[in-house]
Design a protein around this nucleic acid. Structure first.
Lengths: 115, 115
DNA sequence: TGCGTATATAAGCATATGCCTATATACTGA
DNA sequence: TCAGTATATAGGCATATGCTTATATACGCA
């Protein structure tokens, strides 16, 4: 693996730095199982909407996640075309499932995206 | 895997943040194959000795790498006891081998550690 | 014991990061 | 077209980060 599809140190460091934030890392772990929109993240993290938007933007800017407009909402998901996708997936597999956040959303009637 | 040996988001984020720096990530990729001491890193990165020491210290502080005094030198290596060791190893496997740095060291007669 | 080499720590500085509030833009539906 | 909801951007602030130089500490050897 190492030789053929190795990711450059630079690109990997950029991706890892983004993953090194607790909020973004949790977002990514959620996205590994469920697409989400910004307003859902706002509910989950109890954080201002602009803060969430900025986190999302950073990950979108490097291609780590992708967006898809669905009516009024913009739904985000992991980008399988991302050069570091395999690495990201690998990392996320070491982390605990974050379904409780989604279940909480549903209970509060705040779940938007339908998959 | 996910359930049993999952790393907490907090701990993973801390580890990933440290890996998100190009210098430290390169160090780790080197350490995946070879033990190294601080003065070798100083040569490799062409950076001040205190800067290298600080990078090393951060990784040592969270247990990601370990030290072993060998005479005059302190040799660093990946810590297999580190809770996130598997994740770290996994990430490093996605990166290109950094042997050229070691070969360069040897050519310049600056290689210290013997393995 | 004292010099030379290796490493660590302290202090300072410039830049990066993450959060906030205020405001702009985009889409939906009446 | 206008109100309401969702998202993005701008600007500001406090803290974190990475680097440097200066200095302290630790070890090996004459």
């Amino acid at each position: 693996m190492i030789a053929k599809e190795a990711l450059s140190i630079d690109k990997a460091a950029t991706a890892l730095k983004l993953m090194g934030d607790k909020t973004r890392l949790t977002m990514l772990r959620i996205l590994a199982d469920h697409d989400c929109c910004v307003c859902e993240f706002v509910e989950i993290f109890n954080m201002s909407q602009p803060s969430i938007s900025q986190h999302v933007r950073k990950m979108k800017d490097i291609g780590m996640i992708k967006e898809q407009r669905r009516g009024q909402w913009i739904v985000y998901s992991l980008n399988e075309e991302f050069e570091g996708y395999e690495m990201v997936k690998n990392v996320l597999h070491h982390l605990p499932v974050q379904d409780h956040h989604l279940e909480d959303l549903i209970q509060r009637g705040k779940r938007i995206s339908c998959e």
